[in-house]
């Protein structure tokens, strides 16, 4: 768990964030024909980064390796799809709280049942619950079954009858995603520094000792699981809004594994690491795909190389660099 960012690193991250925020300006000049596609791509990556950060709270901070986290991501999306009228816009102030509430409740129940186990058993129980969610939507006809469901009109964001944000606008939605990304990062940073976050981080290091100090680890894990599940639902809600489509694959173990890879690859417990992981993995995917049909090959090689060469992920490398030479742990 990293509580304070070294100055050099903070500067690098702010520069990267600024580059991303200004992409609508410089991207048009550099990429011209591909600009629209890249805007969509980057928006999608930011949403995945939100999901990755929420998983980091579990994996990197509390030491709870969930392989079913995408289920809450998909659930958030499905709530939007189910609540949207067929050819009309839903009201964001209704559907968003509803999606978050459903995800909070679902993660509370799944968390309550899962945290009784630990280690590889926790990995597998969360996988099982994730797959149950996957098959629930895959087999249910009301939710479109394996074909998924469409959201034809994006929800409206109104205040006093005036449209505040038009989510149909690609540029607006890009900044909405960016805003949520930064907001969720700030929220999680605040959580990690709070008394709750300190206990959670300690559980990730030495759960037995935490109990010996007078904390009940189960309660903290359950709250963390619920917070992470709700934030994942927020990500899923955004993803469903962006693509206008939800499918069972959003909940499946491939998606969960994919996000877990982002977290580990980026650097667990650092929050910014998983965000970098999301960008690196997705952009590498995109780059390899445009080079060769057999893009999985370089992708797999890249993942293996990072495991072998960077045991603490990309964030570990950056942290070491920013602390300067000789500064170890």
């Amino acid at each position: 768990m990293t509580l304070h960012l070294p100055k050099r690193l903070a500067i690098v991250l702010v520069v990267l964030l600024a580059a991303l925020a200004l992409f609508p300006l410089w991207g048009k000049l550099v990429f011209a024909a591909k600009f629209a596609f890249l805007m969509q791509k980057l928006t999608g990556i930011m949403i995945l980064a939100i999901l990755a950060m929420s998983l980091d709270l579990l994996v990197g901070v509390a030491g709870l390796v969930s392989l079913g986290h995408a289920a809450f991501f998909g659930l958030g999306g499905y709530v939007l799809a189910m609540m949207s009228p067929q050819y009309e816009a839903a009201n964001l102030w209704v559907v968003l709280p509803a999606a978050l509430a459903v995800c909070a409740l679902a993660s509370l129940v799944v968390g309550y049942l899962s945290i009784r186990t630990s280690g590889i058993y926790f990995i597998m129980v969360t996988l099982a619950f994730g797959q149950m969610g996957y098959y629930f939507f895959n087999d249910s006809k009301a939710a479109g079954g394996s074909d998924g469901a469409y959201i034809y009109v994006k929800p409206t964001v109104e205040a006093f009858g005036i449209t505040v944000l038009d989510l149909e606008q690609k540029l607006t939605f890009f900044y909405v995603a960016l805003g949520v990304l930064v907001g969720v990062y700030a929220l999680l940073r605040m959580l990690l520094a709070s008394p709750f976050g300190r206990v959670l981080g300690a559980i990730g290091v030495n759960e037995y000792r935490v109990q010996g100090l007078g904390f009940n680890p189960m309660v903290y894990k359950l709250v963390a699981f619920t917070i992470a599940g709700t934030l994942a639902g927020l990500g899923g809600f955004l993803a469903a809004t962006q693509y206008g489509f939800v499918s069972p694959a959003m909940l499946g173990w491939h998606q969960s594994g994919h996000v877990l890879v982002m977290v580990i690859l980026g650097g667990m417990g650092t929050l910014f690491g998983p965000v970098l992981g999301a960008f690196i993995l997705e952009l590498a995917h995109f780059a390899f795909e445009s080079m060769t049909d057999h893009w999985l090959l370089p992708m797999g090689a890249m993942v293996i190389a990072i495991v072998l060469l960077l045991p603490k992920g990309v964030a570990g490398l950056l942290l070491q660099w920013s602390k300067g030479k000789g500064a170890g742990e």
Binding site: L296, G300, P311
Partner: peptide
């Protein structure tokens, strides 16, 4: 760590799947 194993063998899956396709 177990997580490194998960990650490396995940990379192996990708390579295996692509090798099969090739």
């Amino acid at each position: 760590d177990h997580l490194d194993q998960v990650l490396l063998t995940y990379g192996l899956i990708l390579i295996f799947n692509e090798a099969q396709r090739i």
